[in-house]
Structures are given as C-alpha cells and as structure tokens.
Amino acid sequence: MSRKIAWWGSAVFGLAVLAGAPLAQAKDWTSVNIATEGSYEPWNLTLPGGKISGFEPELMDVLCERMKLKCNIAVQNWDGMIASLNAGKFDVLMDAIVITDERKQVMAFSVPYAQTPASFVALKADLLPGKTGAAGALTLDADADRTKAAVANLHKALDGKTIGIASGTVYTPFIDAQFKDVATVREYGSSAEAILDLQAGRVDAVFDDVTFLDSIMAKPENNNLAYTGPQIKGPIFGDGEALGFRQKDADLKARFDAELKKAMADGTVKKLSEKWFKVDLTPAS
C-alpha cells in the first residue's frame, strides 16, 4: 500500500532481534520463505481456492524459477511482518513495500520494481480543482516550501472537508503535513475501511495508491467513485516498491537484485505490470 499499514512497532521489535542476534555465516540458499498479505489487490491477493496470486506472486514465480530456488509463499498480517522477518520466520517480504529511510533502519531492500503515484478519490470528480489523474500529475520531493506551493489549490479546496486514509501509510505524513490544518484527517486500519466510509458519506475524499484505487473502482459497487484532482508522485513517497530482507542477508538480496534487474531489462516486469495494473509501473532507469 505502497505499504501502507502501521509498521513501526514491529520494526522496533525487529531492531531488538537484530541487536541480540549473532553474526551468521553466508547461507547456501536452496529455498526461501516469503511473506505477503494476500489481500492488497492487485499487488497480491488470495483466490477463492486459496492460491496466492497477483502482480508480485507472479513476478516471484519468475524470479525463483530463474534462480532455481524453492519459494514458499505464505500469508502474514502486515503489522507483524517485519518482526517475523527479523525473527527468522520469513526470509523475504513481498507486499508492495515502499523503500523509505525509516524502514532502511530495520531491514534491507531489493532494487525497486515499481513506482506508483497516489490520488484522491471522491463521490464527485469536481471536488478538487485542476486536471484529473496523470494529465495533471504533480511530482513532489522533500522540500516543504515547494510542496506547499504545489498543493495550494488542493489545500484551499479541502478546507472544512474530511479526508480518509489508511493509518501508518507512506502517504499519512503528507496528508497530515499539508491538510490537517484545514481538514479533518480520519485514519483507518485498512484502505478498504476508508472506502466504505467514503461510500457512507462519513468522509469527503480518500487518498491512496492509484493501483489499489483502480482495483477498488473497477468493482460494480464502487462505480460511483471518481478520481478528483491530480495524481501525486515522486520522492516525497519514497524510492518505489521493493522486496524486504534481513540486513544480514546481503547474499540473498544480491541474488534477487540481479534477477530483478534482468526482469526489468527484458520486459518481464513491464508485461506483468500491464497485465495487473493496465499500465507500466517499471521505475525509470
């Protein structure tokens, strides 16, 4: 969610595990245990028969076949994922996890394999001014003054409104910093819960990853929802989605990095991205 749910408590636990763990020798990897949420469509989802599918599981199938690794994918709640990784339950995390400086303190990341924008969605497309979607996209960085100027029209339009957002996402600090002084920000345990409250009229707009929103809006019960205002993207939301590893497992990370680079170079990531997202989200080289 572009991941998206509160993680710091788990990360602190993970730090404690790392601090007390002895240095390990390089491992001869023949199999890996991979954790995913299995419910963040279309990144990962659980089919009616129990099979885990989606963009990331299909990409993982390709990578593991090429590396001759046996890959065991299991469902794990996000809020315990980082702790489980650092405790040794899993070797790899695969859950639309965005690379951020804070997360780098407790885990290592592969090269990013996707980079996604975010947007507001509402019951009315004209809630916010300007071109909608990619046509009016704003690319933002960490400079507070530039960001404030870029979203000034959105800030004015959201005065007195209520914004819904999943708690602990990479987008939460942005919404708080730019709009909490004029709007009510209501946090939810999941993105899906925020959408339910939007439909119920308890919030005026929801801000989230466009890949998630595209999936939600494709469902018949949500055909009344509309994007409003521009897509927002750029370094302000981190360096893109990647796999997560224990910091000590540099050898495993290096193997996945090498195969991910090949998969991006030969068009595999583009093909899967267009299949699941209807757009190529491969990071610019």
Rank of each mutant, 00 (worst) to 15 (best):
Y188Q: 00
D61P: 02
D143V: 11
P220V: 06
P112E: 05
S31E: 15
I52K: 14
R202M: 04
G160Q: 11
K262N: 02
I34T: 11
A74R: 15
K70N: 12
G136S: 06
K124I: 00
G9A: 15
Q231H: 15
D95R: 11
W8F: 14
T46M: 10
V269N: 01
P129T: 04
F207S: 04
A183R: 01
G130E: 02
E187D: 12
S273F: 03
L45K: 14
D61Y: 08
D159Q: 13
D257E: 00
I175D: 01
P283Q: 01
N86L: 09
V12G: 08
D249T: 07
A11F: 04
L252M: 00
S84N: 12
L123E: 11
G229Q: 05
T162G: 02
N72W: 07
L198K: 09
D141F: 10
D95V: 13
D176V: 14
P235T: 14
L272W: 01
K51F: 05
V151P: 06
A263V: 00
Y188G: 03
G201I: 04
Q231F: 15
N222Y: 13
Q76T: 10
F256D: 05
S110L: 03
W29Y: 10
K261C: 07
T100P: 08
D257P: 00
S84F: 02
A96N: 15
Q199T: 04
K253M: 12
K261G: 11
M60E: 15
A16N: 12
R246S: 09
V210C: 02
L23W: 07
T282K: 05
A177W: 01
T282A: 03
P117E: 13
I5K: 09
M81T: 06
P42I: 09
A183Q: 00
G54I: 03
S84V: 01
N77V: 14
K278R: 13
L127Q: 12
F174R: 02
R246E: 05
L123S: 11
L63C: 06
G240T: 11
G88W: 12
E65T: 12
T228W: 13
A177F: 05
L158F: 06
T282R: 05
R202D: 03
G189W: 01
K89G: 07
F256K: 00
D141H: 12
L127V: 07
K180F: 08
T169S: 15
F245L: 01
L154S: 01
L243E: 06
L281I: 10
V182S: 02
A250C: 00
F237A: 08
F120D: 04
A16P: 00
A150H: 03
V12M: 15
P283D: 01
W29G: 03
R103A: 09
D101E: 15
G88S: 07
K131T: 10
G54C: 04
A144P: 15
N77Y: 12
P230M: 10
T46C: 08
A135T: 10
L59G: 02
S39F: 09
A137E: 13
L123Y: 03
